[in-house]
Design a protein around this nucleic acid. Structure first.
Lengths: 322, 322
DNA sequence: TTGAAAGCGCTAACAA
DNA sequence: TTGTTAGCGCTTTCAA
């Protein structure tokens, strides 16, 4: 009826009727029922955003990028968290898809065949983010973690380091960390270097974890001249430990992390790191969804675009320049 | 029809039919349309979770608490972010309520009259979290920030400090930080002490910000013997700065932050802080919603319960004990 | 510019 | 145990 037209700002309503309707709506505290609206119009202004975790600093920044871009549209991001568990991802995906969102932004490229099938059959734009080393269902926006691993390895080699240790998460489901390590060891072996030590941990990242692991590694393998950490947080812990021990950084020992976490600026030394382009990834992914939604918004048939961002290496004070 | 019964696991279906239906559903990649289901049953298994920000470490932990509890139920958290903007909160709230969720968990007690009216009229459980100093619409789960401010002030006084500076966010809409400061100055003035200096900042918290501010404050007011920071991140920056300057902590100068951020464990010294019970708050809030949803799930008429958690003071290495 | 009617894909209640 | 029917509250289409 007319009310519907007013509330959706569709033209062809006289100013007086409009006023009356608006007034009544306000008076009654009327909140339209999107469920009914969506059912009737088969349009839903929700974008499902599915990420593995909120605990590290990486996904919040992605989300900020997404919500920043979507704020200029009528789309609304809606978050689901999987805790890096494939079954949980299936469940969350199933739940969200059953609300028929306008698009899906989902972290990573690795998932169960069931999840992949759901995404393919949903008939909506799907953007897989953070990673581009693999086959996306539709579009992908991210960086190459293999390449990132290779680049940092090359920088370490160029810095003259030869006895290199790796410290990272054990989590077998963090595929991106795994790819970085692969790229890293690949580049090392091309230069005839083997990883001299490695150490994996479980649980949450933090300074304390970085300290512990560093201490253990240096006591077991004292002749290391470089430590590569899978993230900045444990890297920072290692840095603090080494400074306390009076180790000459970056000469006797070099250090590097990954992510380019901003809040760490202000440590006694700037940790070498590689920016993971988190915010840009979020923004680009949201733009893909918004653009497609504006143009009729189905899944791409041509095969979605692939947007590859280039992480920037920061030497900081813990990695010797060539 | 029968299909509906199978997919919702309602009894009274023979095993064979069930099998057939399930098989067909899988083969077709069928994902039920919750929109239609919700419209028909007027039940929606979504819980709206509305928070101001993801950038600091506080809300992610709340969300972890919420999703941990809701995982054992059929409820699904759905996140909205307001960036501390009341208009944005109104908008997000309106959007989410128009999907008729089973409950709302929303940060803080301060909001526009429009938002408050929407929450009241929604007819669903509403839990306002993080803060209990004020009048909730329905239920509230949190800590008293005024009390937290008073307690830390008392501990500082008891430690023998007298020339006290405060460093915190300028953000006029962070009501909880404001309440902590109020409680803090109240307790000081009861003891006949005035704040000897204060400094406010805008932008994101991080170590660098804490350093800068600390340097400025100590150069302007060198005779301070305590610095109270509105959060651990800038407090940690201040701590690092002071250690570098060779200041004798906690004797010449004491420091304290707020939040009990775990990842900071592993700094050269443990910063005194007060745990803000983030995870517990999330868990308790989710339980309130889950319980009410299980019992017919409307808004509380009796006035919702109020769950007040008690933050624990940690002296660390930067606050002298009495 | 407004009103009336059909129907979106389910669930709930009832009948078979 | 299964099938049938009438809505849920909107949007869309068509008629007035």
């Amino acid at each position: 009826m007319t009310v519907s037209r007013v509330l959706r700002n569709r033209g062809d309503v006289s100013a007086t009727t409009r006023e009356r309707v608006l007034e009544a709506a306000k008076r009654l505290g009327y909140v339209p029922n999107k469920i009914a609206g969506a059912l009737a119009s088969s349009r839903v202004n929700l974008v499902a955003v599915i990420i593995p975790s909120l605990s590290n600093m990486v996904f919040p920044e992605v989300i900020n990028g997404i919500s920043h871009v979507l704020e200029d549209t009528e789309l609304q991001p809606v978050l689901g968290v999987t805790h890096y568990r494939p079954e949980q991802e299936e469940k969350v995906l199933y739940e969200m898809l059953s609300w028929r969102p306008s698009g899906v932004i989902i972290a990573g490229l690795e998932r169960t065949e069931v999840s992949r099938a759901m995404l393919r059959n949903a008939g909506i734009p799907v953007v897989e983010i953070m990673d581009v080393d693999g086959e996306p269902v539709d579009a992908a926006v991210g960086i190459s973690h293999k390449r990132a691993g290779r680049e940092i390895a090359q920088a370490i080699i160029d810095g003259g380091y030869r006895r290199i240790g790796f410290l990272g998460t054990k989590m077998p489901l963090d595929h991106r960390a795994k790819k970085r390590l692969e790229g890293f060891t690949d580049a090392l072996s091309k230069a005839g270097i083997e990883l001299a030590a490695q150490e994996f941990y479980e649980g949450t990242s933090g300074f304390a974890k970085g300290r512990e692991m560093t201490e253990r590694m240096l006591s077991q393998t004292p002749d290391l001249d470089f430590l590569y950490y899978s993230n900045d947080l444990i890297g920072a812990g290692g840095l603090l430990y080494c400074l306390e021990k009076g180790i000459d950084i970056p000469n006797d020992l070099g250090l590097a992390g990954f992510n380019g976490i901003e809040l760490l600026e202000g440590l006694p030394r700037r940790l070498a790191t590689m920016d993971s382009c988190r915010r840009e990834i979020g923004e680009a992914a949201a733009r893909v969804i918004a653009d497609r939604a504006a143009n009729g918004g189905g899944a791409s048939h041509a095969g979605g675009e692939q947007i590859v961002l280039m992480p920037k290496l920061t030497y900081g004070d813990t990695l010797r320049r060539p």
